[in-house]
């Protein structure tokens, strides 16, 4: 994935210099970090206590469902599901178009 030629300032983040009317680069980063801190340490923990969200998380964990899995091999429930599907298919292979 080669990048097209860019000015060196772009490669290292062109926003690294102060612009009139905008906070200094360091201040901008500090504001972003403060926002992350508030969201992750205050807002999201509060959302996690909402009963519907709590129920959803508990249900996923009880069923071995990891919604952040990117591939089937990352799903905790997959070995169990795979075994169950094998049993069903082997019991009636013709139903699945297999001999």
């Amino acid at each position: 994935m080669p990048l097209p030629p860019l000015p060196s300032s772009a490669m290292s983040g062109s926003a690294s210099t102060s612009e009139p009317g905008r906070p200094a680069p360091g201040a901008r980063l500090a504001i972003c970090l403060a926002a992350i801190t508030v969201i992750w340490l205050v807002i999201l923990p509060a959302i996690a206590q909402v009963s519907t969200v709590r129920t959803m998380i508990d249900r996923h964990e009880a069923h071995g469902v990891d919604p952040s899995a990117k591939f089937y091999s990352e799903l905790p429930a997959m070995p169990m599901i795979s075994q169950r599907v094998d049993e069903i298919r082997r019991a009636e292979p013709e139903a699945f178009g297999l001999k």
Partner: peptide
């Protein structure tokens, strides 16, 4: 909450990098 909404690490890794490169520069 983030995890169970499928907002996976790729998004946050990109965000962390973007925040740095677009504020103080890499």
């Amino acid at each position: 909450v983030v995890k169970h909404l499928n907002l996976e690490y790729a998004l946050w890794a990109l965000t962390v990098g973007l925040l740095i490169s677009n504020t103080i520069g890499t």
